[in-house]
Structures are given as C-alpha cells and as structure tokens.
Design a protein around this nucleic acid. Structure first.
Lengths: 340, 340
DNA sequence: CTGAAAGCGCTTACAG
DNA sequence: CTGAAAGCGCTTACAG
C-alpha cells in the first residue's frame, strides 16, 4: 500500500491526500464523498479507492467548522444507574440515530454544579438542540440556555409555561392517584417515603399531601424524607425508621420502586405481613416489581416513550417544523398488584 | 448590552468579537482565556468582561482543528440498561472528568454492526483513545482500530495477548469457581442457564464446563442457552424449561443475577424450596441479591473499578507513560449467601 | 461534471 | 506582556 504524504499535524490522511491519490481536486474529492450523486461514476470509484487505500477518516471538527452545521444533540440526565433514565436514553437513541445525529450524554448526578459544568462544556460543541431532565434548573443553567438560543425540550414532567417544550406526565397527579388508591383501599395511616429529593420526588410528595389533606388524613409525622440516593438498602433502612416514628402506619407509598423493594424485603425479614399489616407501593414499575412475591403495586411510567417523543419533538423543532403542541402528556398507569 | 458584530455563519460571538470589544488582538484574547497566567491582570479582566458581555462560548471544533489535539475519549459498551455497564461508566467518568476529557458514550446493543457503525462515526471526532468492552470484535472493527493507530483498552476480561491492554478479571475462572463451589456443596446435577450469549457469558459457561468435566458431572442436557437479552422474566421462563428437560437438576448457575432473580421468584411461585430442593446462584452481585429472601449466592465483580482502572490506564498511555503492566486483573469475589 | 479560492474560528511559534 | 500571519481540514457558492 503506497502512502501519499500525510499532514504533519495530525499524522492522518486528509482530504487533500485522498484527492492527490485519486488525481482530482480537493473539492471534487469532497463532493465525491459527501454528495456521491453529483459526480461521475468513474470519479466516484477512484475517490472511493483512494479513501480505502489511505484508510481516510474525515475530520469532523473541520467539517463542523466549515459548515457551521451541527448534528450533535446534548442530553443531560441526573443518573445512569437509575433504570428510568437508561430507558429514556434508549428512546432518544432510537428516535435520533437514523438521522445521523451524534448524541452527547451527560450525567449530572443530581447536581446543579455538575449540570452547569457539563452544559458549559457541551455548548462548545455547538449542539443543534438540548434534551434536559426536569423543569427546574439553576439560574446559571437557565442563563446559559437562554443566551445559547438553542431549542430545548424538558423531559419527565409537564411545564406549566406553554412557551416551554416538555414531554412527560404529571408527577404530582401520579402521586395523588397512588395515594387516593391507598385511601380507597381503606388505609388511614399512609406514610410517604422519599429519597434523593429531586424535583420528581418532591412533586410526588406534593400529590401525596394533597390527597391526604383532602381526606383529612394528613400527618407530617408520616413523611420520611432523606436526600440520600434511593436504593434497596435505603428502603430497608427507612422502613425501620418509619415504623419507629409511626408504629400505627398501615401503608407506605415509596417514591420509587427501589425503596419499595427494600421495604418489602425488610418486612419479610421482620415477619411483617405485606399487604395485610402494611401495604407497600412504589413508583416506576421496574421489572422486578411484577415478579417479586408479593408483586408490587406501583405506577407504570412511559420512560422509553418520554425519551422517544422528546427527541422526536426536538428534531422537529430543529428542522423548523412548528409542533402542534408544546407539551406532550404521555400519562401513567396505576399497576395494582399484591403488595397494596 | 451592546453587541459587537457577530460572524455571519454561526450567528454566535467569536473570539474576534471578544477581542474587538476588549480592544486587543485576537490572539491575545485567546491567550487571556486559555492561558490566563501569561497575561497581565488588567488585560485578563477586560477580556473576561468582554466574554461575559457577549456570552461568548468557544467553538470546540475550531479549537480541535487548530490544535490537532483531542480530549475526547470514546467508550463503547454493549448495553446501558445493564447495571454492570452503568457502573463501568461511572468509574470511567470519575477517572477522567478531572482531566477535562470529553467522553463519547456509544451503546452497541450487543451488535457487531452497531459497533462498527458507532466506531466509524466516533473516529471522525479524532479521539485520543478508546475504551472497548470485551476482547472479541468483528474484523471490520479490528481493522478500523488498527488503522486508527489509537490506544485501546479492553474492559471486562483479560487479554491473553500481552500486547493488548486489558482490565478486568477472568470470566472463565469466575465461572469455574462458582461451579466448584456448588460441586463442593454436594450438588451433582448442576445446570447452567445462559442468555444473551455474549463473550462473557460464553466464557463463564466454559468455566462451568471445565469444572463439571473435571468432576465427571458434565451433561450437555444441563445447559440452557438462549440468545435473548437476559431479564428477570427470562429467568423465570428458563427455570421452567430447565426443569422440564432435567427434572433431577439440583442446582442452577445463572450467567447473571437477573436470571437468578427470575428463577428464584418462579421457584417461590411453584413452591420449589431454594436452596433445599434447588440451589440457585447468579453472577455480578446486583444490589437486590443481598436483600432478596433468600439472599442470592453470586459472584461479586469489580465493575466500577474496571471502568476506573481502564480509564486510568488509557490516560497514562495517552500521556505517553509506559504502564507497568498491560493487563490488570481486578479479580472477583464469591458471595456465598442463602440461595446456594 | 469538475476546479480555484476563500473562509469557518481558533492557536501557535516568532517577534517586538 | 502583547501582536501579525499562517495554518488546521473541510465545504461552499461561482465559474468553466
């Protein structure tokens, strides 16, 4: 394999090298690669051969600079270990990959500071649009977003401001629905177990409070809220705390399934009958919830679709389409099972 | 806020705009931003003010082109819904983020074709290095890698070729160890339940076979292998299949915890005593394994550390350090619990 | 269908 | 400590 001179800087074959080897002008080589139909078959073949010979890989930075076009889309999620967000991500990938978008995934770890930092860095890639988790962000993030003037779609909850794009479902409504379900089942001393205390948990807690207050059942003692990341282990621990504070508690609404699973496992170890003595329910319907014994009553959430629809909406906005609606409500489903 | 003229193409403030507003040369503005210490305090302040006034965001593509340096690192994982790889990713982020690397995460979905496609695209970003999952890749991927001439570190298993960089542990050895544990417990008819059939599962199966053969216990009937993604639901289903084929089976080694959880839940539903009638163990020690009832015997794997160490090794190679060893064995831990 | 030239926005030795 | 000039690798109207 004979090699043409390579650029000194990158050590890689450049378009100019390809052109030289194919015996054409650089711009012709460019066209043969980017717009193969605008070029004669013979020339196309020659350029392709040169590309293969030199193992030419286009330089994306140069292309981005020259075209001032961007095919990158930034996605910021608060966690990668949470199955909810990996499902969202899968939806995004499925919606976007056919169009050749490059997805820049940022894990903010539920931290405002991290979100600011990542956004600052990713903005340098001049993305075409941004997919954000949640509605509430720090002032700095809000500013960065505003001055970037880029299309933004928020995922997971619904914005009240009609000028913002959002795809998700009402976290508050879901919290309310689950609580009403427990009340309708005759439970009186219903506890709320919350961890992480992110925006969504807080909204679910709000829905819980609303339902409890309406029913005249509200008692702040019944709320156990901690800011630690929510895990099975934490659910097991919080069950103990909850029962210590309110021993007469007869149901627990966990802000998510991990917590619920941990609480149920702990009940099993302590010989507390679920749901007879204590009803326990979760949120998100993780795979284990349908299989555990008892199976777990929870809220099924359209997380994959949230990602898919949010990405589709963003794509439409980028392409200049005016979307029919700025907020897409994907709803949620109460999955009544054995645990409550 | 007065605006200086903006570039026609991108519509954004450029370094030249910043320089003009600060009343300095472009290159001076560049220096004030990139090497603040090489510039007088007064000038630095003026430039920073201009940056703030114009909400200037550097163009990463231009920088990349001009420096021919790359701070991007490509990471290819086979799944984002598998907790193993999200832990690996967390380790990578922790190891790299302080150095200002930009991580490009690609989800190959256990597909060679997808891996080729993603690698081809990501190579265009001229990464500084690549982190790959597994040792076995398609010929096209191998070729792309070779002609890219980039440092590559493989994660999850150990390469036999000392010229390749790898960080992980012996999947085969781990499979062997778990099987020996069951044999030592007096089990004779030990089944192997495998899904996805990726490289790692196959290696674990190999270890299983080796141990069974050594003990004169091997029987191909005892292997249930399917290529579907491994889930709790699949574990539940495969338990049924396994017991239909080999009703005298007295233990099952599941290639991962999801499968084991599903199998155990199914046993509970069918009234099969675990471990008395049937011992069940898994692989990876997912959080639920320690909490379920019975708790699950499994292999603890250093996935976070795999990511962390692999990224650290790659960073060292990129910086030109010659690493002490090309393969880093992080080992694994047998977690003997109640289910087996 | 093919090519000459300018420019995208930044940085880097080299001078002053 | 500050600046003039060239160049990174590609693409895009505009001609021929």
């Amino acid at each position: 394999m004979t090699k043409t001179a390579r650029s000194r800087t990158s050590g890689r074959a450049t378009l100019a090298d390809v052109a030289a080897r194919a015996g054409v002008a650089t711009m012709t080589a460019s066209r043969a690669i980017s717009h193969p139909d605008q070029v004669s078959a013979a020339l196309r073949a020659r350029v392709q051969q040169a590309v293969a010979d030199l193992a030419y890989v286009p330089n994306r930075a140069a292309r981005a600079l020259a075209t001032a076009e961007s095919n990158v889309i930034v996605v910021l999620v608060p966690s990668l270990s949470n199955a909810v967000f990996t499902a969202v991500l899968a939806g995004i990938q499925d919606a976007l990959e056919a169009d050749g978008y490059q997805i820049l995934i940022g894990n903010t770890r539920y931290s405002d500071a991290e979100e600011e930092k990542l956004l600052g860095i990713y903005l340098q890639s001049h993305p075409a649009g941004i997919l954000l988790s949640g509605l509430t962000h720090s002032e700095k993030v809000t500013q960065l977003l505003a001055s970037s003037n880029l299309p933004v779609v928020s995922m997971m909850d619904l914005a009240s401001d009609p000028n913002r794009y959002s795809v998700g479902f009402s976290q508050l409504q879901a919290g309310y629905t689950m609580t009403r379900y427990l009340i309708d089942k005759g439970r009186k001393r219903i506890g709320f177990m919350g961890a992480q205390l992110d925006e969504r948990t807080l909204k679910r807690a709000e829905g819980y409070r609303k339902a409890m207050q309406e029913a005249g059942l509200y008692d702040p003692q019944l709320e156990t809220m901690v800011s630690d990341p929510s895990t099975i282990a934490l659910g097991a621990e919080l069950l103990g705390r909850m029962l210590a504070v309110t021993p007469d508690c007869d149901a627990i609404f966990c802000c998510n399934d991990d917590l619920a699973h941990g609480a149920i496992y702990q009940c099993q170890r302590r010989g507390i009958a679920v749901p007879e003595r204590l009803a326990i329910c979760g949120f998100n319907d993780l795979p284990a919830s349908a299989w555990m014994n008892p199976s777990v009553t929870t809220i099924g959430t359209p997380r994959y679709r949230v990602g898919y629809e949010a990405a589709s909406l963003l794509r439409a906005i980028i392409k200049g389409t005016v979307p029919a609606q700025t907020r897409i409500d994907l709803g949620f489903t109460l999955m009544a099972r054995e645990s409550a």
